[in-house]
């Protein structure tokens, strides 16, 4: 309740232009798209381009300007990023803005952090419990929404002070979680497909940014898996599942799904995967084929499923304990990829 009284200043909006209040500021400004080509708008347009460019080059957003340039440059940068129609640029831009917000937020007061959090509908309050040496208390659902994909063990709920539905946090951690919110909000805005017809200058800028991104992505293009399935590169969990399956031993639902998705992911044809399940007592050829093709994305929703990541396998006790390489990866597929690469770089054994 007390949060509604906090008003953001123009300085705040310049630092955190993703806040809902920016929309009102822009409305008052009455900026029109056609006007962006006017010479007096050049600083705004330049700043917008810089935002996206810095994002592509260094995951930064560049140096801040005067409020009257800084604030409107954000929605223009969003438009620019959409105009590139490139998912790498969009992802990268959202991340860059979010990271910038995180580094700014660390210097804010608790009250200001709470106000920003309220903009994302968090249930957050100052900690009034003297026995807990952390300043902020946030609802565990808000906490989980923003931490489940963070990898450090420290973010796991089990390693947090959770009491009465509240997770206790210091300012730094609250700001880090807000970074996730910022990134999601911007990514969402970047999903927009329909754009008004854009002035030539903007389309040209988008084209330049795209060129820049192509150079950048070229360096880190994703490699696929080779056609031949290499059993000796399987991680321990998959070896265990594979052996159990070929001996007809009972596999849990998660186990079956993991094995099937993994094999499909690395390029084993569905009919070969089906053969593996033949020795099960409850084997049903039609059903098995159906399930495998479903996972392979050849049926139903047409999405190809990816095998679960390591932490999920740990939760469901499919993880068999790890070897040295396991400790470096978070996904069975990553293990496979690395092991394959290691083996191909070794000279072939006689």
């Amino acid at each position: 309740m007390q949060m509604e009284t906090v008003r953001f200043t123009e300085n705040d909006l310049a630092k955190y232009p993703f806040l809902k209040e920016t929309a009102e500021y822009m409305k008052k400004l009455g900026l029109k798209i056609e006007e962006l080509e006017n010479p007096e708008m050049a600083p705004i347009l330049d700043r917008a381009q810089e935002r996206v460019k810095e994002a592509i080059l260094s995951v930064g957003v560049g140096r801040k300007r005067e409020n009257y340039v800084e604030i409107p440059s954000f929605p223009v940068a969003i438009m620019l990023a959409i105009a590139t129609k490139n998912s790498f640029i969009k992802k990268r831009y959202a991340l860059a803005e979010a990271k910038q917000a995180f580094s700014d937020m660390q210097y804010e007061t608790n009250e200001r952090i709470m106000a920003i959090a309220a903009d994302f509908d968090w249930n957050i309050a100052l900690n009034r419990n003297p026995a807990i040496p952390l300043e902020l208390a946030v609802n565990f659902t808000d906490y989980l929404r923003n931490t489940t994909h963070l990898r450090d063990k420290n973010w796991k709920l089990v390693n947090r002070l959770l009491a009465n539905g509240k997770v206790y946090l210091n300012k730094h951690d609250a700001a880090r979680l807000l970074q996730e919110e910022v990134q999601r909000r911007i990514e969402k805005r970047l999903e927009a497909k329909e754009l008004p017809s854009l002035p030539e200058k903007i389309t040209a800028m988008a084209e330049q940014l795209l060129e820049l991104a192509r150079e950048k992505i070229g360096e880190q293009e994703m490699e696929g898996f080779p056609k031949v399935v290499s059993q000796s590169a399987f991680p321990p969990c998959i070896i265990a599942l594979y052996e159990a399956a070929s001996k007809g031993r009972h596999l849990s639902h998660v186990g079956r799904f993991t094995l099937t998705a993994f094999l499909v992911n690395i390029g084993m044809p569905p009919e070969k995967v089906a053969e593996l399940f033949k020795s099960f007592s409850d084997y049903n050829e039609r059903l098995t084929r159906y399930q495998i093709e479903h996972i392979a994305g050849e049926r139903g929703s047409r999405t190809q499923y990816t095998s679960p990541q390591c932490s999920t396998l740990q939760t469901h006790a499919v993880c068999t304990g790890s070897d040295a390489l396991c400790r470096r990866v978070h996904h069975p597929l990553a293990y496979y990829r690395i092991k394959l690469r290691q083996r191909t770089s070794e000279p072939p054994k006689k």
Binding site: T141, L144, R145, T147, T148, H149, K153, N154, K156, L157, V158, N159, L162, S311, T312, Q314, T315
Partner: peptide, 21 residues
């Protein structure tokens, strides 16, 4: 109600003490 599968997994891990530092 709106918790996704990952959030529920974290709750499972909490309840079973999985990953406790």
């Amino acid at each position: 109600r709106m918790l996704d599968a990952m959030a529920r997994k974290e709750i499972v891990d909490y309840v079973s003490g999985l990953g406790l530092a």
